[in-house]
Amino acid sequence: MDSILSWIGTAGMTGEAWLRHTTPDKYSAQTLELSSETILQISTQLLKSPPSSVDSSALDSTITKTRKHIDQMARLIRAKDSPAFAHQLDSLRADQKIVKQLSDSIEASQ
């Protein structure tokens, strides 16, 4: 879960940096794509043998939603649509909080 949170955090920071015009478009889009791919890989591994305390379907749907937001952000960079990008970034922040809560509940149960 720490790795998933790390990559959601990376996507969030990459998004913030792009909104501030401090990083190139290509780098930002590629980093978001890498974040999405890595989250998929890690979550696939995690969901193969999930901890007994975790609600697998809740985790799966949250991760799927998160990845969708990140993929959308990568597309919006190419479209140079900052307002829509900012909206997706807010949604990602909300996803991040849910994943963090799930992670904390797993940690507490162990």
Binding site: D2, S3, S6, G9, R20, T22, T23, L34
Partner: peptide
């Protein structure tokens, strides 16, 4: 932010806040 540095593209963000 709980970010681990596993890839170079993550490390590249290091100075983006301090030197925007």
């Amino acid at each position: 932010k709980g970010i681990q540095v596993d890839k170079f593209s993550q490390a590249a963000l290091l100075m983006t806040t301090a030197l925007p």
